[in-house]
Structure formats: structure tokens, C-alpha cells
Amino acid sequence: MTDAAQIADRYIAVWNETDPARRRTLLADGWTKNATYVDPLAAGEGHEQIGALIGAVQERFPGFRFALSGGVDGYGDKIRFSWALGPENEPDMIKGTDVALVEGERLKSVIGFLDKVPAGA
């Protein structure tokens, strides 16, 4: 049985990892080799592209951190969770909801939705 909460926790950890080498390790451990990520602003396929996309978000929003927001749902090979992104004093400046397909305990495909994005972000 898939542990949706554990997968979501690992997902958030990848987005918060600022060391590129460590991020590559986390991607290799938690994502399938040909995993895909897509949201309204970006897309990537495979560990290298997804890692670069995460690095670009960190450059755009230095010091911001992701955190899970609310519960994590899952059934079969699907999970859904919401997250918040922001600096420590405004942790929910940006919000989103992601839906993912998993293969065992690894992410196979993530589709991200942006629920709250301030002007100019």
C-alpha cells in the first residue's frame, strides 16, 4: 500500500533542498527515472530537468520554503496534497495543490495547480 503522506513529505523535501547534489539524490530515491512534472509555469521530464526546475524556483524565490498545507489524500496509484510557499514571516504567500501518480513509493508524474499567486510573483 502506498504511504501518501510519506511520499508528499519527500516531495516537499526535494523542493526545499538547496544543495544540487543532495537534491539529485532525493530525486533518484523518490522519483522514477522518467518522472514528469508540469504546472502552469513550468515543465520537466527526468531527474535532471526536474532538478533544474526546482533550482530555478529557488533562485527566483531565495529563502522561501515549501510546507504541506492540510492533509494528504491517496488511493490506488494517486495522491493529492496542498502546499504553501513563502518566507518565514509569510509562509503562505504562494499556495498550490498537486496531484501525482506513483509507482510503488516513487513519484511517476506530478501535475501542479497554483491556487494563490500574488501579482508579480
Rank of each mutant, 00 (worst) to 15 (best):
4 A>K: 13
6 Q>N: 02
8 A>H: 01
9 D>A: 14
11 Y>T: 06
15 W>N: 12
20 P>I: 02
21 A>T: 11
22 R>C: 01
23 R>H: 00
25 T>Q: 15
26 L>W: 09
27 L>H: 07
28 A>S: 12
30 G>R: 05
30 G>K: 02
31 W>F: 14
31 W>L: 09
36 T>I: 07
37 Y>F: 12
38 V>D: 01
39 D>V: 05
39 D>I: 07
40 P>S: 13
40 P>I: 02
41 L>W: 09
42 A>H: 00
44 G>T: 04
46 G>L: 00
50 I>Q: 05
51 G>Q: 12
51 G>N: 01
53 L>Y: 02
59 E>N: 11
59 E>H: 02
60 R>S: 15
62 P>D: 11
64 F>A: 11
65 R>C: 04
66 F>L: 11
67 A>K: 15
67 A>R: 14
68 L>M: 10
69 S>P: 01
70 G>C: 08
73 D>C: 13
73 D>M: 08
74 G>Q: 10
75 Y>L: 09
78 K>G: 05
82 S>K: 11
82 S>H: 07
83 W>K: 09
85 L>M: 15
86 G>Q: 04
86 G>N: 03
88 E>Y: 00
92 D>G: 09
92 D>F: 07
95 K>D: 03
96 G>Y: 06
96 G>N: 09
98 D>S: 08
102 V>E: 03
102 V>L: 07
103 E>N: 13
107 L>G: 08
108 K>F: 01
109 S>R: 11
110 V>E: 09
112 G>W: 08
113 F>C: 05
114 L>N: 11
115 D>E: 15
116 K>Y: 03
116 K>C: 06
118 P>F: 02
118 P>Y: 04
119 A>R: 15
119 A>H: 10
120 G>E: 05
120 G>C: 10
